[in-house]
Computed example of a mutant assay.
Amino acid sequence: MSDSNTTDFTNPSTFILLGIPGLEASHVWISIPFCTMYTIAILGNFAILFVVKREKSLHGPMYYFLCMLAVTDLVLSTSILPKMLAIFWFNSREINFSACLTQMYFIHCFSVMESGIFVAMALDRYVAICHPLRHSTILTNPLVAKIGLAVLLRGGMLVLPYPLLASQWPYCRTNIIPQPYCAHIAVVNLACDDTRISSYYGLFVLYSVMGLDGIFIAVSYIQILRAIFRLPTKDARLKTFGTCSSHLCSILAFYIPGLFISLMNRFGQNVPLHFHVLIANLYLLIPPMLNPIIYGVRTKQIRDRLLRLITH
């Protein structure tokens, strides 16, 4: 690598993405599962959108929120994988400064949006189980549209300071990012100024979003479980709880790796860097792949419609 990457400069025109440090020789092999996950995510989420659009019986709040989740997963995975595969296959490590900040914005914006959509889906399950007779009158199409707009605006506004602040810092250490994408903290760590405001704001977004969304989901499911346990028969309880199983699986696939990464970043100083990077990549790539599989397999209406379309 040239010396210009480590000499002093204040406004780098490009950053250098290293991919997965320490595993450069295995980049081609690592790309195979990553490319497979991306392909499954693209095909699965487009299949969800296609089935819901074609079947008028699926035009309801639960499936509208599922479509929002599918679009979010498509944008999130597409903002990461193409550049990552270019690094793995063609050693195309340079990324323009503006493109890096744009990628940073999309990654964090749509991660926040995904968390918000899970909250909206928890609200849908709460109303459907605790107030089944009023579900259609409470969650009307205009309200669903307003919830979707609120989720979009929250993600966009909360994450907007990330690139705005990052674009103001002077960069005089290096332009080498030891990751295959431009994460917020990885870019900010390259600045040679006091960047505590960016670090503190990043922590604020992380804990306020994950914390508040997690509390809302937990409260919703406490009320749901109370309503389920009041049902008279075991079969009724299992059937009702089964309507929440897909949502719960997706929540666990999204929040548990995020919590694990947060703990590892603070207490895993002895963990190798390449392990940190691999886990962070999987955290962003696994949910977009798993969500359509979970809902396609565990949601009977989607599974039946999809099988019918395939057989026809």
Rank of each mutant, 00 (worst) to 15 (best):
residue 109 C to I: 02
residue 268 G to S: 01
residue 106 F to Y: 14
residue 111 S to T: 15
residue 132 P to C: 01
residue 120 A to F: 08
residue 145 A to M: 11
residue 8 D to Q: 12
residue 153 L to K: 08
residue 311 T to Y: 12
residue 304 D to C: 10
residue 210 M to I: 11
residue 34 F to R: 01
residue 131 H to P: 00
residue 180 P to Y: 05
residue 13 S to N: 15
residue 143 L to G: 05
residue 44 G to S: 07
residue 149 L to G: 10
residue 172 C to T: 03
residue 196 R to F: 10
residue 289 M to G: 00
residue 32 I to D: 03
residue 2 S to G: 13
residue 241 F to N: 13
residue 304 D to A: 08
residue 104 M to Y: 10
residue 238 L to K: 11
residue 286 I to S: 02
residue 191 A to M: 02
residue 196 R to W: 13
residue 165 L to K: 05
residue 298 R to N: 13
residue 138 I to M: 05
residue 197 I to E: 01
residue 108 H to N: 13
residue 259 L to S: 07
residue 125 R to D: 00
residue 276 H to E: 01
residue 274 H to N: 14
residue 311 T to D: 09
residue 246 S to A: 15
residue 76 L to T: 08
residue 302 I to L: 15
residue 191 A to V: 02
residue 281 N to T: 04
residue 295 Y to M: 12
residue 170 P to A: 00
residue 45 N to I: 04
residue 238 L to S: 10
residue 65 F to P: 01
residue 15 F to W: 13
residue 220 S to G: 01
residue 204 F to M: 04
residue 147 I to A: 02
residue 7 T to W: 06
residue 116 G to T: 07
residue 292 P to L: 09
residue 75 V to R: 03
residue 6 T to S: 09
residue 178 P to I: 00
residue 259 L to A: 12
residue 285 L to D: 01
residue 310 I to L: 14
residue 147 I to H: 07
residue 111 S to W: 14
residue 113 M to D: 02
residue 57 S to K: 10
residue 269 Q to M: 08
residue 294 I to M: 05
residue 129 I to S: 00
residue 284 L to F: 10
residue 104 M to V: 05
residue 116 G to I: 09
residue 85 L to H: 08
residue 246 S to Y: 09
residue 43 L to G: 02
residue 63 Y to E: 15
residue 302 I to Y: 08
residue 75 V to G: 03
residue 55 E to S: 10
residue 122 A to H: 07
residue 119 V to H: 03
